[in-house]
Nucleic acid binder design. Structure first.
Lengths: 152, 152
DNA sequence: AAATAAAGTTAGGCTTGGCTAACATTCTGC
DNA sequence: GCAGAATGTTAGCCAAGCCTAACTTTATTT
């Protein structure tokens, strides 16, 4: 039923190619979503180690706002993926790779946060939004954010 | 082992309160993540209806970059949640609620996109990043984005 | 040093969101 | 109008992330 295009504003022409720009964008989003949790954990672990000398699951749970068993399972995945090392009933350590990732994340987080604040947002809102936005900012956009904050 | 705080930069003090600002931010991110897919679908369905007169699962699958059964399952959830109506082997319709959500999403998407472009980003990068960012932008931040685009 | 408290783990359950394979229905072209 | 193509559905698999309940280990307190 109905196949006519009203050729309006939006880019929704029946494009037979498998390389749909929109589809690519969504695939990128899904990809980003998969790494989000790992990035948040690794970044948090780095902070805890810096602040407390160690990263204990109980503190991770508190800061992440989840329960202990959730943390345990997630840490297992992070260990499997080579981002952390851990021993039973002991606190958590970052691998070299984990440390590198944490550094990147922190840098990115701060650029986004600084950018939002330099736009005039209050720090609380900026922090909350940065937490969600940071994982979806491409390198190019990040560069633009950084430049903007600098020159404003 | 070790419980001394080096009282450095980051807000990682052993705060006993359950109301951790960080935890709240993460909970917000998780909340946003839950509605993301629904929002993307509803927005896409609105576009397809507008462009083609109807929203067929096959087109949704193509645009979303997923397979048909994934679309079917997701549409069932959207129907369950009152955002769409559908009949077997037929195309999809938005409910009043779905239409309202689609409108909001579109508005938000366009504000974010316009904002990124007004920062000087190329349209392709802007589009890709907007797709991910839009779900994590608070009303306050959105207002700031809109104002910025207007006055620049 | 024994008892209690705190932290960590394990087992098991649930939803989401992706997939393939197999089957059902609808549409199209001859 | 019928055969083949396109589309849609169902069944069943899997991993991620969340949870509670029950148990073990470690840490603290007296």
């Amino acid at each position: 039923m109905m196949q006519d295009n009203h050729l309006e504003s939006m880019p929704a022409e029946p494009d037979p190619r498998p390389h749909d720009a929109r589809a690519e964008a969504f695939q990128g989003v899904r990809e980003a979503r998969r790494s989000e949790l790992a990035e948040d954990y690794v970044e948090l672990i780095a902070e805890l180690i810096h602040a407390n000398g160690e990263a204990r699951p109980v503190d991770i749970a508190t800061k992440m706002g989840v329960k202990a068993p959730t943390v345990a399972k997630t840490l297992d995945r992070l260990a499997r993926d080579g981002l952390i090392t851990r021993a039973k009933y002991r606190s958590v350590f970052l691998t070299e790779e984990g440390r590198a990732l944490a550094g990147e994340c922190r840098r990115r987080h701060e650029i986004v946060l600084r950018f939002l604040i330099s736009l005039g947002l209050d720090p609380e809102t900026a922090e909350r939004d940065a937490e969600g936005i940071e994982h979806h900012v491409s390198a190019r956009t990040l560069a633009v954010f950084a430049a903007f904050s600098d020159r404003s």
